[in-house]
């Protein structure tokens, strides 16, 4: 009898595992939102774009003081210059992005022709290459200026990532991003979820672990630790190094898919980049 019950329980559990592993993106997002609501019942949804400062009262005061004279402001200005300055061939970014510069909410998206997730930095470099300009580096440097300007102009736009159903590869890319998020890696054996889902709000030494909801709304970000603005993929790289995993290439498939998944999880939140963090 006991054995029968045990195997039934095992079956049910296995069923549960398969079910959640194969949940739809919308089911994933609903579970995410429910999880954080449960964990931080006093935090309203619209606070999550503020990252750790949505849950860290002391840190928030310092942050608000910093935001009065935002350290990323000069980068926005220089980004605007970049945006407006014609390429050698006389064309500008506007020729590539007629709706620009407020285009951040269009990214990341699935590109059926390319068969891959296209992020904003990738699209910017595509535009440069098409106009005979050298591509920019993806972690540090001037791409951040351009991104800061676009982010600033896009403030208030709602994240609305879609997984188009007419191309199964889109869902595949999303699933890969989700798998990345839950996969433990590095010598320290952490997944993104270990820190930012399971232990969001807890402290590692004095650092409070930020929730994943809202992780993608505020890039590029000026980090005091960096002394400058950096991209989301630079941050991914740093996270992977922290857990003693070899980081992946910025704008490589792994990080683009992760961004696709993470941004989908934040659907409905408002963009508030560029950001500033400790």
């Amino acid at each position: 009898m006991n054995k029968v019950i045990k195997s039934l329980v095992a079956l049910a559990l296995a069923g549960g595992v398969t079910m959640t592993a194969q949940a739809s993106p919308e089911q994933d997002r609903a579970a995410f939102v429910k999880y954080y609501k449960d964990r931080f019942p006093e935090v309203p949804m619209e606070e999550y774009p503020n990252g750790v400062y949505a849950i860290d009262k002391v840190g928030r005061e310092n942050w608000e003081a910093i935001e009065e004279f935002p350290p990323y402001e000069p980068f926005i200005d220089s980004g605007q210059e970049m945006w407006e300055k014609p390429f050698a061939n006389g064309k500008t970014y506007k020729d590539c992005f007629p709706d620009g510069p407020a285009i951040a909410a269009k990214y990341p998206h699935w590109d059926k022709k390319k068969g891959m997730v296209v992020t904003l930095p990738l699209a910017l470099n595509e535009c440069r290459k098409a106009n005979g300009e050298k591509p920019l580096k993806y972690k540090k440097g001037p791409i951040n200026d351009l991104l800061a300007y676009i982010a600033y102009e896009s403030r208030g736009q709602k994240i609305d990532v879609k997984i188009p159903e007419d191309d199964p590869r889109a869902l595949e890319a999303y699933e890969k991003g989700k798998k990345f998020y839950f996969t433990r890696r590095g010598q320290l054996n952490f997944s993104c979820a270990s820190c930012h889902l399971q232990n969001a709000g807890m402290r590692v030494r004095t650092e409070i672990l930020s929730p994943s909801l809202g992780h993608v709304t505020h890039w590029p970000t000026y980090r005091s630790k960096w002394g400058t603005v950096g991209t989301l993929h630079r941050r991914f790289t740093g996270c992977n190094k922290n857990i003693r995993a070899k980081p992946f290439k910025a704008q490589g498939e792994q990080y683009r898919n992760l961004e696709y998944f993470l941004t989908y999880m934040s659907n409905g939140l408002k963009l508030n980049g560029p950001g500033s963090r400790k």
């Binding site: 232990n199 807890m202 402290r203 590692v204 030494r205 004095t206 650092e207 672990l209």
Partner: peptide, 16 residues
């Protein structure tokens, strides 16, 4: 260990 655990005699411990 202090990254995640309070230990007597250790400064600024985490609470994971």
């Amino acid at each position: 260990c202090l990254a995640c655990h309070m230990i007597e005699g250790g400064t600024s411990p985490g609470n994971v």
